[in-house]
Design a protein around this nucleic acid. Structure first.
Lengths: 187, 187
DNA sequence: GTCTATAACGGGATAGAC
DNA sequence: GTCTATCCCGTTATAGAC
């Protein structure tokens, strides 16, 4: 029996799970092989440049998701500002699985990860800030207000993920999403 | 010539640097050996239980520093609340080297680290919250206010370290410390 | 496109001399 | 207390069959 071709999306999804949990150095090819259902040699067929390329695929995969589901919502001008806010917050919640899953900004930015992917991470963070700014402007905030709120949103998300995980209390992440909402729309 | 005994404190300091930068899995014994100036076998003389014990020494080393320089300042009732605030903020700045150094809550709490050190991390975070709460109470805040400010301080510190590093902009960390100050003392 | 098998290397850890 | 030398295993990566 011929081996099935494993679907690209299933591979990306499995890669993402592993790298988010373990980071770049902590993710071993054996574990990645188990998670994807491919043997190591097959992984090298898909990713000839090896582990680094696998991690890059994770960035691409998440970037695309975020672009559509979060940035897309934040700047969708067929929606009211309140709708944009609610939709993007819900999708942020989904991205981090209610606070259970880490962010690649964190797990892939330890020393080695930062050397390899520093510019992607910087770029990604700037995108988050840019799109949150648009939301603030849509709510009538000044440029300065919108900017500082956007930066603080990013800080809050990153920080609350770490604190939630450390304290094993997901309500902290949830509460942070509420705080972000309140920066734009009271009650 | 007899080998010098390498000072405990120099070892802890070097260990801390490596684990903070690389995390548990990313820190290799070769690198630790280089950083401490001890050969691998000598490290095992000091830390018979191996790498895990080395990381534990880092927790102890930082815990002690934080206990004295940060928690000590936060609850020092020979100082005015404003003095406690300023001193502890300055020491937080020092702890993270103006935002250049990571926090072990972050680097030692990836999947494997969390399995090994989860309860130490939880405990440590609770200590930070507890002592920040005392500061809030000293400033006349209600228990609820003091608690939520304390949690938010922790979130802000963790988040701003990640965002500062990612954007390569230490002013974000500095600004966060100012925000924390303003939770207690206006201007 | 996937596999088995294996190479080449670095990882954590230990033995034993000084 | 530190060292050199070594062990064993898991790691990344490759060769070649199917």
């Amino acid at each position: 029996m011929r081996p099935q071709k494993v679907l690209d999306n299933d591979i990306y999804s499995a890669l993402t799970k592993v790298f988010r949990a373990k980071g770049f150095e902590g993710a071993s090819l054996n574990e990645i092989a188990d998670a994807t259902g491919l043997k190591k040699a097959s992984l090298y067929h898909r990713f000839p440049e090896g582990k680094k390329q696998m991690a890059e695929a994770v960035f691409n995969y998440i970037d695309e998701w975020v672009e559509i589901k979060i940035f897309g919502a934040l700047i969708n001008n067929t929606l009211t500002p309140d709708q944009r806010l609610n939709q993007s917050i819900n999708n942020i919640k989904e991205l981090y699985n209610d606070g259970e899953e880490s962010c690649i900004f964190r797990t892939l930015s330890m020393k080695v990860g930062l050397e390899l992917f520093g510019s992607r991470i910087k770029n990604g963070m700037e995108q988050w800030i840019h799109h949150f700014m648009e939301l603030g402007l849509a709510f009538g905030q000044s440029k300065e207000e919108a900017k500082s709120n956007a930066v603080q949103n990013l800080i809050d998300i990153q920080g609350s993920l770490i604190v939630s995980e450390g304290l094993k209390d997901l309500s902290i992440f949830e509460n942070t999403l509420r705080i972000i909402k309140n920066r734009y729309s009271k009650e």
